[in-house]
Simulated scan of single mutants.
Amino acid sequence: MSDLPVFTITRLFAVDRDTMYDAWADPRRMVQWSGPKGSTVEILSGEVSEGHTVHSKTVSPDMPPMYTLAKWITLSRPERVVWEQSFADEYGKKTVPEFFDAWPETLLTEVDFTEEEGGTRVTLSWTPIEATPEALTEFEKQMAGMKGGWGGSFDELEAFLAG
């Protein structure tokens, strides 16, 4: 796995680790900040617990609905959450999103919460775990865009945490 591309982003938030953990692991909180700016996220089925899969729908004003799957692997309060993330159709079947010719079928999402002076550092990593060579190439090409996308989500998270 060491030759796989890995996307990583990190940011310090001015909250304690328990508050940050809850923002990621409590679905009522996560839907309030996740997704692109201006979007709404709805959980269609499943639950956030180890071994379970959540099927969700994201609606944005400027794009068609987007569906995702999150199979929860690790929920370790207050330091870490891990899930396998995939794009899906409205029925919960894994798909490649229409806006890419190739994309990894599944990404391992690892989020670590580290207590630091001034708050909690969030470090998120995405690693393709089911991908063709073409999908890996596309994943690497999209890393700058992922920085912007996750940066926007982190902005939303910061605003949510500020109340």
Results as ranks from 00 to 15, higher is better:
D22G: 07
E47C: 08
W83K: 07
Q32F: 03
E105P: 00
S2K: 10
Y91T: 15
T137N: 08
Q142G: 10
R80M: 15
S125K: 10
G119I: 05
T137C: 02
L69N: 07
F13G: 03
L107K: 02
D26C: 08
A14M: 05
W72F: 14
T137W: 03
W103S: 04
L44H: 09
P64I: 00
A131G: 03
T95P: 04
D101N: 13
D3N: 12
I9F: 02
D18N: 13
P97R: 03
G51V: 10
M146E: 04
M63I: 07
G151F: 01
D155C: 05
A88W: 05
I9K: 06
F113Q: 08
Y67K: 02
F160R: 06
F100K: 08
V6F: 01
E42F: 02
T127P: 00
P27K: 05
D26M: 11
A102L: 05
V54C: 11
E138D: 15
P64E: 11
P5G: 02
L108M: 14
G149H: 01
T74L: 05
P97W: 00
E79S: 15
R28E: 15
R17F: 05
L44F: 07
V81M: 14
M30Y: 14
R17W: 05
L108H: 09
V59E: 07
G46T: 05
W24K: 04
T127Q: 09
T109D: 12
V96K: 07
S34F: 14
R11G: 06
P97S: 01
R121H: 09
L161Y: 09
Y21C: 08
A25V: 07
W150A: 01
E156V: 06
S60G: 14
V31W: 08
M143C: 02
V82R: 11
L108R: 15
I9G: 01
T114C: 10
L161Q: 06
G38I: 00
Y21V: 09
R121I: 05
V15T: 09
P5H: 03
F7L: 00
A159V: 12
S34N: 13
E138Y: 01
T68G: 13
A102F: 12
M146S: 10
E98H: 11
G92D: 09
